[in-house]
Structures are given as structure tokens and as C-alpha cells.
Design a protein around this nucleic acid. Structure first.
Lengths: 186, 186
DNA sequence: TTCCTAGTTTACCGATCGGTATAGGAGAAC
DNA sequence: GTTCTCCTATACCGATCGGTAAACTAGGAA
């Protein structure tokens, strides 16, 4: 089992599902887009669902690594980093390929809370919340748990609205909202 | 063309699409769920897309009417009403049938900004923004446009997170975040 | 050389997709 | 009673769905 080919498939499938949606992207179309034959895909993954779960695992790792790296490059203090989250988001929104959050879309298409895909989406948000909570604690917040929930709320709202409206204005408003919330919480 | 039968179809289709998703809910399954024959459905709507657009029009009207009615019942002052938005949301989240926002899901499945379904979702958010802006203006906000954007941001974030995590905690945090933002904006 | 592995192409499976055609039934209007 | 409207049920269309079977090829190891 060539691990590199498998990873290549997951990476290309990630892009394809991100652009096309999970139900709308069929396995035949996926084979054509990735350049990997259907037979090979089913050698690596028993079902489409398994492939999607692998895609989500990759995306979770990819996104959180990117966000943390970016935030740490943009600001030094914990407080500055909580705000830098929204500068990083602004950069993401400015990419022409931006199409909302893969996990929000996954939970939209697989709504049952018991479904593994829905759970994977929830887990991603939980991990993000953990990072924000760490920053909030370092920043000396009175209630770091509550502050991190509010930061996450604004982040998710920004992602949704950036997909539907003026992306630049959304990033700015989100940062402004975060400033107000930080001012009240520290 | 019996208008009442048509409306009945749209109402039942709304529930079916809300539970099942747009791509996942096929026209045969829809006929079974609504009790309306496929032939009759295609007498009223030329395509599935047309039916979905009618569903979204109904949902927009339904949701905004409900929200405005609820907000006006919960508080008298414009400031209080901006906060009551999140009490109303909390009531919505508590319903067992709650499954996120139909328009967020629509824009997740139809991502192209030029697609009529995506546009309908964007329009719904624009109308909500208008309502919040009116309240912000009445409340005497320095920048009502900016304040309304921030309120909408928190509302959308709350809807997403309520779909993925602890709904009660989300509603509370959203209200708290809105309080901070109102305090800074008025 | 021989064998195994990892991948390919092509074709196929039953089911479902969105959409249509046909025939007929129930009820109101004339 | 007849016609028109609105609906039904059933069957069908070609295309695509997720998934599988079979035969083949290229490369590396024994």
C-alpha cells in the first residue's frame, strides 16, 4: 500500500470535495478529478464515507496548523494573538478559492449528530476552542472558557458571512467585535 | 392551479429538505414524504431547483416573521430587542427539530455565488441585517451599520455552533457577547 | 525468471437521480 | 351528462449513484 499515493489521493479529494460538496461530488467524478482510478480508491478506502473522514482528518490538521502558525507570526502577546485570529481569517477570506469552512459544510450535509462525519466536524471545533481557551488563559481572562466560546462564535459567524457577503467588511467587523469582547473580558 | 395544494407542498417540502438536505433528498423520496405525486409536483414547479427556491422564499418569510414577532414580545426598548434576538435564538435551539439554518445549508450545497439558491441565501441574510440595523439606529448606536454587522456575525456563529455543540451554552455565550458589543457601541 | 504488489482500464451491478409520458379518477361548472 | 381542471398511480427515460469484478501492466524483490 503506497502511502504517498494514498496521501496524494486524500489531498486531491480534499480540494474536490471543498469545491463540489460531499453529495454532489460522485466517485466517478472524483476519480476523474484526482487522476486516481476508482479501483485504486476503493483499495485504500472501503467506502466514500471513509474517504471523506480521511479528508476531514487532513483538513483539521491542515487548518489548525495554518491558523496557529499564522497567529503566532502576527502577534506576540496572548491578547494580540486572540485578535490576530481575525487578521488570519481576513487573509483566508481574501483567497479566491475561499468557500467557507469544510466542517460547517460537512455538518450541513450530514446532520445526524451520531454520524461519524458530523462528529468529526464537532471535534474540529472542539480542538479550535481548546486553542482559544489556552490563549485566553495566557491572556489572563477572568473566565477563559467563556471568552474562548465567544471568540469561536465570532469566528464561525465570520466564516459564514464571508461566504455570503462582503468578505473584507466581514473580517473587519469580526475583528472589531473581538476587540469589544476582549476589552470586557480582560 | 390549486394555490392551497401548492402551498401545502412547499410547506411539507420545507420540512423534508430541512431534515434531509437538498441533494440528499430526491424527488421520489420527496413525493413519498409530502404525499404529493411527482407528476403534480412537476405541474407546479418546472425543476427541483424552482421548488427549492419556493421553499427558501417561504422559509425567509417564516423565519423573519417569527424572529421579529418574538423579539418584539420579549423586549420593548431597541437596545433590549437587540439582546432579545439571542433569547429568541435560545428558544429555537431548544426545539428538538433544530438543525441549523436552512440558508447556511443551502449556501453550503450551492456554493457558486451566481447560483440562484446561493443568492437567495445571501438575500435572506441581507434582510436580517436590515432589521438589525433598524434596531441599532433606534437604539442610538454611533455606527448602526457596523453594530448590525456584528450582531449578525454573532447570530450566525451561534447558529453554527448550536448545531455542533452544547446548544444552551451557545445561546448564553452569544447573548453575553452581544452585551459586550452593545455596551461598547452605544 | 518468477512472483508479488500497486496500480491501471473497462465493464458491469442494482439502485436512485431528475424529469416525463400516459391513462384515469374525482369534483365542480356548464 | 359532458367537459374541464386538478390530481393520482404507474411506468418509463437516460444518466449517474456507490461499489465490484476481471484482465492487464509496470516495477521491484526473490
Amino acid at each position: 500500500m503506497s502511502a504517498s499515493k494514498r496521501d496524494e489521493l486524500v489531498q486531491k479529494a480534499l480540494k474536490a470535495f471543498y469545491r463540489g460538496g460531499f453529495h454532489a461530488m460522485g466517485m466517478d467524478a472524483l476519480a476523474k478529478e484526482t487522476g486516481v482510478s476508482k479501483t485504486a480508491m476503493y483499495k485504500h478506502f472501503r467506502t466514500k464515507e471513509d474517504l471523506i473522514l480521511a479528508v476531514l482528518r487532513l483538513r483539521d490538521e491542515q487548518f489548525r496548523n495554518w491558523l496557529i502558525r499564522r497567529v503566532e507570526a502576527l502577534a506576540e502577546s496572548p491578547r494580540g494573538r486572540l485578535l490576530a485570529v481575525f487578521d488570519a481569517l481576513g487573509e483566508w477570506f481574501a483567497e479566491p478559492e475561499y468557500r467557507s469552512c469544510m466542517f460547517i459544510k460537512a455538518s450541513s450535509e450530514y446532520q445526524d449528530r451520531a454520524h461519524p462525519i458530523h462528529s468529526a466536524a464537532a471535534e474540529h471545533k472542539r480542538l479550535l476552542l481548546g486553542y482559544f481557551e489556552k490563549l485566553a488563559r495566557e491572556a489572563g481572562a477572568k473566565e477563559p472558557e467563556e471568552l474562548s466560546r465567544r471568540i469561536l462564535l465570532i469566528k464561525e459567524g465570520a466564516i459564514v458571512m464571508a461566504h455570503l457577503g462582503d468578505r473584507e467588511a466581514v473580517a473587519k467587523s469580526a475583528r472589531g467585535a473581538a476587540e469589544d469582547i476582549l476589552a470586557a473580558a480582560l
